[in-house]
Design a protein around this nucleic acid. Structure first.
Lengths: 330, 330
DNA sequence: TTGTAGGCGTTATCAA
DNA sequence: TTGATAACGCCTACAA
């Protein structure tokens, strides 16, 4: 391995000069600088990031811990994070916690011991533990869901309002019994969707019986059986608001099995835009979340925090957009 | 920051002993070991990964460079990589090259300077340059596409055969003019699909006119316009084989615009399984690729290579499975 | 402007 | 078995 010592020797200067040149520091005589650059190139010098990290006690790496790599919502966030981070000279390492507290904890550990410059995280369902990050002074930005504990920079989506608007839209289309299929109790985004649904029913002067809100894992399989139960139950709905992308797939499968056609038989609105929503028949009405923007905002917040560790903690709330298609029209 | 020096002082032993205990090395007197453990816990000691990395000249991190985080095929690979790597005690950092040679090069640089233990990569379209990795002795495993240059451990899918089988299936269903919509010329997976398509036509005693093979970027938008051209061209096909997931979406959009119904009007088979393929009407026949297995195989290969750097270079080829649904039946 | 030299926290070598 | 100590490669006071 070629080190700055080799380069220094080859260029006939000191290691300090080499370091300065390589980092564009202070004013080094142009001639010397050139000699260093030439020597470095001739020798095929490559900086040893490990040594630099140790010396600097930090890295130009941001960790992004998301709960599901296979969910387009999160990969869109990842893209937003990556694009902006790249511009700022940071690398992004993507960690998939799989909504599993253990995996999440492991990545948190790695983030601390490898001293990443910051962690952007969408916390898992279970009670997450970010104390190690806090203790080590690693900046945290939460996305999609707030983190419990001390105030933390956060980027959220107003999904309560999004759910409310979607429900109102369904009611406005003449559906009378709008159900809500959402995620597990205690998951903020799941509870928000349920609350928005309730808001809309109440505002319309309707009762909001518990039987109209159904909970399942944020996955297709859970949503499928939950949908079947919902439409076989006593208070049979004529419309449903589904809380995310993955669940939407399960719900649509279930409706097909039940012989119910979206739109004409059952009004359907789901959270999250996806490439296939216009391909199905009828096309799916969605509550589109600004996933990419969540990511880009989160990085900007992180960069601000790194630049100014003592600044006030902020929470940014972005908004959803209802995209009306045929699945919510009779 | 608490260091092993602090722990050593607190436990009344040397740093060497602390290090040994913390790494489960050699046989340390049980009593001393206990004292060290207690001291570490009391002080809230956390290992500094940076220092360890520098000293060891290596990290327990694998880099996975994929060309599109938003493509389910690659995220499924990622999951396979991650699951197995975790078991073996490696962390995985996911890098999204966006099929952009510059981004890829940047990640390669980072991988070298941060001295990751290995790089698993699906090379970009453009001529990739992995010389820095090779020079630094970082093991490489290629997935999905071979890398140019010296022999490299590789996990491929026999997509030529997959394409052939899909084409034969369409011909067997009575479609007579089967087109192939594939990726850019020079991209191995794209060329393989075209070749498999040709193989099937020839084996059936048919001519394989160039007009039946259309190329576009591996994206929905390109596939959309390419499909329109294909079906408005002179040799109008009555079936089409589409080369990937993202393109499938564009093709299906185009067919709808053209008023052509999959199955009855146009036989459609696409590469890659996706959650929505059963939701559309009619359900989509696909050439399913074993994406998860690609990832898990790649990691195993990597672990073997790390354990035994001089072993023979291997290429593993996995196979596709044709999943017949209604889009390829009249 | 340039060079010297110390230290970042850990592991591994060598003595004891 | 344990301890002292020298690296690992880089950056940065501080001195010249």
């Amino acid at each position: 391995m070629i080190t700055i010592n080799d380069v220094a020797a080859h260029a006939g200067v000191s290691t300090a000069t080499v370091s300065r040149v390589l980092n564009g520091k202070s004013t080094v005589d142009q001639q010397l600088a050139d000699r260093v650059l030439v020597a470095a190139k001739e020798l095929g010098y490559r900086r040893n990031g490990l040594a630099r990290n140790l010396r600097r006690q930090s890295t130009a790496v941001l960790a992004l811990i998301i709960s599901d790599v296979e969910n387009p919502f999160f990969t869109a966030i990842a893209r937003g994070v990556e694009d902006i981070a790249q511009e700022a000279g940071y690398s992004v390492v993507l960690c998939n916690s799989d909504d599993n507290a253990d995996k999440e904890a492991r990545y948190v550990d790695v983030a601390v011991s490898e001293q990443v410059a910051g962690v952007i995280v969408s916390p898992t369902t279970a009670e997450p533990n970010f104390a190690p990050l806090r203790d080590a002074g690693v900046p945290i930005v939460a996305v999609d869901r707030p983190v419990p504990g001390p105030p933390t920079d956060t980027v959220l989506v107003d999904s309560r309002l999004g759910a409310r608007q979607a429900t109102e839209h369904l009611l406005g289309q003449g559906y009378t019994t709008v159900a809500c299929l959402t995620g597990p109790r205690g998951v903020p985004t799941a509870d928000d969707r349920a609350a928005g649904h309730r808001d809309a029913l109440r505002a319309a002067g309707l009762r909001a019986p518990a039987a109209l809100t159904k909970r399942a894992e944020y996955r297709a399989s859970g949503a499928r059986s939950a949908t079947v139960e919902l439409f076989r139950g006593r208070t049979r709905p004529d419309a449903v608001l589904v809380a995310n992308n993955a669940m939407a797939i399960g719900t649509l499968q279930a409706l097909r099995e039940l012989g119910l056609r979206p739109g004409s038989d059952v009004g359907v609105v789901t959270f999250d835009e996806a490439p296939w929503t216009t391909l199905i028949d009828p096309p799916l009405t969605v509550v589109a979340q600004p996933a990419y923007d969540i990511g880009s905002h989160a990085v900007r917040m992180m960069l601000d925090r790194i630049a100014e560790p003592d600044r006030d903690v902020r929470t940014t709330t972005l908004h959803t957009a209802l995209v009306e298609r045929a699945s919510s029209v009779r």
